[in-house]
Nucleic acid binder design. Structure first.
Lengths: 142, 142
DNA sequence: AGGGTTTTGATTATCATTATCGATTGATAA
DNA sequence: TTATCAATCGATAATGATAATCAAAACCCT
């Protein structure tokens, strides 16, 4: 099922309404580069629909997180970032401190070790975050 | 060299002054449970030195981070937490979403895989964060 | 001990996020 | 289609953590 349908069903199920703003925000979010901030999306949306409010973008992104279409990320610059959820594709991040580039990585062996660690502490994992901060290849050369 | 000396040398080197507040904050910080917030420390300090200001605690913790005595952690509840740095003992965290308990873990095999990931991207690691969020054994039973 | 500089503590500013509120819109039933 | 009414919008104010400001006090060096 495509995301627009998932969102629509989610809204109906919660007794919420489908509005042109919500549709537009979802559409713009999905068409954007990954890891965009609220500010990024807001500015892009203003070009199509100049009256849209910052609060509406904010509220709608929370809804997208709630219904599983987006996930919220924090990389330490004080701006929450949002990323579309892809099926069967968990990944973590390399974050360049210099240019801000964000590179995704997957390492199933790390995930497996994580599970071992949790098990050793009788801990039930709900989610995790794993980020490596440093310099990307371009910035390291300078 | 003990931490009080490290801090004192750091202050001298930077042309900063040793004050009773700074000494008291360091002392109280080192005596506290790990992962304490600014609020935690502030409240504890007020009992010994009722006039100390919130801003002073805040500023001094930043200094402790700068001179390598403390590290700052963020576990997603909006409160920065500070932890004394121990030599040769890097660790990461399990964070209970229910009771807030923070459990430390070390897994050299994960660190090794991290390095491999970074190398594959020509990425230079400066620091990293790795946190597993979920339920501790106590909270999972309920 | 004294003078110049830093620090303190109280307060205010800042920034991201969240709450509020009157006007407007969407969904449902007549 | 229209009426109804709750949900939503957009603007703005509130919030909360952190950072900046500034006069008074403390510190350090001579």
């Amino acid at each position: 099922m495509e995301q627009a349908q998932v969102f629509s069903d989610f809204l109906t199920h919660k007794g919420l309404k489908s509005t042109i703003q919500r549709k537009l925000i979802l559409e713009t979010f999905l068409a954007s580069r990954s890891h965009c901030s609220i500010e990024d999306l807001y500015l892009k949306l203003r070009k199509k629909h100049s009256k849209i409010g910052y609060a509406t973008v904010h509220r709608t992104l929370k809804l997208l997180v709630e219904c599983g279409i987006a996930i919220e990320q924090h990389f330490g610059d004080g701006h929450a970032r949002y990323e579309p959820v892809r099926e069967n594709s968990h990944h973590d991040h390399l974050v360049c401190r210099e240019c801000g580039e964000i590179i995704e990585f997957e390492e199933p062996r790390i995930e497996q070790l994580q599970n071992q660690v949790a098990m050793a502490h009788n801990f039930t994992i709900i989610s995790h975050r794993h980020e490596l901060y440093g310099l990307c290849s371009g910035c390291a050369q300078k």
